[in-house]
Design a protein around this nucleic acid. Structure first.
Ligand SMILES: NC(=O)c1ccc[n+]([C@@H]2O[C@H](COP(=O)([O-])OP(=O)(O)OC[C@H]3O[C@@H](n4cnc5c(N)ncnc54)[C@H](O)[C@@H]3O)[C@@H](O)[C@H]2O)c1
Ligand SMILES: NC(=O)c1ccc[n+]([C@@H]2O[C@H](COP(=O)([O-])OP(=O)(O)OC[C@H]3O[C@@H](n4cnc5c(N)ncnc54)[C@H](O)[C@@H]3O)[C@@H](O)[C@H]2O)c1
Lengths: 215, 215
DNA sequence: TATATAATGTAATCTTATTCACATTAAAGT
DNA sequence: ACTTTAATGTGAATAAGATTACATTATATA
């Protein structure tokens, strides 16, 4: 069991981004990178990059070549790919749910969507991107059977709480919620919300603000 | 031209959430609400709610009834629905793009998707949720014609920068980017990124963390 | 009309996140 | 081997954000 100092959420977000960039650099046969280059790719500052690396106890850089990409990847993986990460259940195979299911890029990373659930008879039994859709009644069984620990919620917001309760009682401890609803969960469960409508409103606001004041 | 003290991004995000909750309350015929109730609905604290309201110069609450819902809605609208907010162009009518197009809930709010763009011949000319798909060559014209000022990018990340450049040179000043790519824009253009893969990795990390330490 | 009550509005404080600044250092060139 | 150079690693400073705490206040009740 590891015993790092608690890592800030913002740092975790940036680590995920660094990792993606580093994987791309690696696939381009690069072996080293400077903090200012990674900062450029991740749209932040060199100091921020170095601080993030420091936070995860990563000090393998040297002034003449920067950081070894493999070294950085190992360090980041050791933080993000925690030993006991399970698979994902997606609930609500509508437009958005299907888009997420068909998106195959996260096959690379540890957690991937192992089962889908819906109430619509039409959808039950269908297979999307090699992921089968089950009725809600089978959730508990499938979650155990497939080692699922995470949930993605893409049902209409009225049903989001109901679905959450089911996921939690099946043993899920992390939820990514696309429904514009505030979810009530026990405090050993982590919920992250992606609110697309809110983001659009935010962009509208700041687009206006930026062009008024030139940033 | 308004002259508020610069409003923090976090406050803007929460205002968008308050507004949605308030609209729902209003549709349930409620007329007043206390900060602690709104906090409950928005998953934050009463003090945070009052502070946000204070930031936007909103002090119409009274100790016995709380805040008038109409009053709050007007105040929030006056901030978020800025006078010169335009329509939205969505670029990349793939799985995710289609999901966003078919999602009709933001018809309510000022900006809505007025045109879609794609390079795929198959998709050009199609109409999804009463929004027509045009070739990239018509972007400049359509942006002007339809009063578009915002863009949503749902193309593969390799093309994201190219598409951004086109949007910007057509006059767009705010972009919501779903591609896992860092975009380069002039600094009068605002970019917000939604990185679904990163969010999943974050949920995986904190789900583990929370269940290890009980929050 | 006076009193009690419970929520508001906000200054002050605390916390978290980011940036600065610089001494340290690893290699490349002389 | 010595000098130069440009990046690292990190304490200290600053900025941004959230929370606390409480004096103020609008109304219901006595
Ligand atoms: N599509 C978007 O662009 C978009 C944007 C913002 C927010 N959202 C939110 O994402 C969620 C999904 O949006 P969508 O456009 O995919 O909706 P959708 O109507 O296309 O899909 C919803 C799916 O959930 C299923 N469902 C309904 N109740 C269920 C239940 N109790 N258990 C299991 N499945 C159930 C339905 O059968 C359907 O397949 C909604 O909450 C929506 O508000 C979507
Ligand atoms: N679907 C998801 O769940 C998901 C998750 C995470 C990230 N993303 C990101 O969102 C973006 C879209 O994902 P998707 O699953 O919808 O992909 P998709 O392949 O289904 O759709 C991409 C669309 O963009 C169009 N396109 C390609 N190049 C273009 C160009 N130069 N100009 C205009 N249109 C162009 C294609 O014709 C296609 O219609 C990608 O960047 C992806 O990485 C998607």
């Amino acid at each position: 069991m590891k015993r790092e100092e608690k890592i800030p959420a913002r740092t975790i977000e940036r680590l995920a981004i660094y990792r993606r960039q580093l994987l791309e650099l690696k696939s381009n046969r690069l072996s080293h990178i400077y903090s200012h280059q990674l900062a450029e790719l991740a749209n932040n500052t060199p100091a921020q990059v170095r601080r993030d690396l420091m936070i995860i106890g990563c000090s393998g850089g040297n002034p003449k070549q920067g950081y070894g990409i493999d070294y950085l990847l190992n360090s980041i993986n050791s933080i993000l790919d925690n030993d006991k990460a399970g698979q994902i259940a997606l609930v609500g195979v509508g437009d958005l749910g299907k888009a997420i299911l068909s998106y195959s890029n996260y096959q690379r990373s540890t957690p991937s969507v192992a089962a889908a659930f819906d109430i619509d008879e039409e959808k039950i039994g269908k297979v999307i991107a090699s992921c089968k859709c089950y009725p809600l009644s089978e959730m508990k069984t499938k979650v155990k059977e497939l080692g699922i620990t995470l949930g993605i919620i893409t049902v209409p917001s009225v049903y989001a709480q109901k679905v959450t309760d089911k996921l939690v009682s099946a043993g899920v401890t992390g939820i990514l919620n696309f429904a514009p609803a505030t979810l009530r969960v026990p405090n050993n469960v982590f919920v992250e919300r992606i609110d697309i409508t809110m983001e659009i409103e935010k962009v509208a606001y700041f687009a206006n603000e930026y062009s008024r004041l030139g940033k």
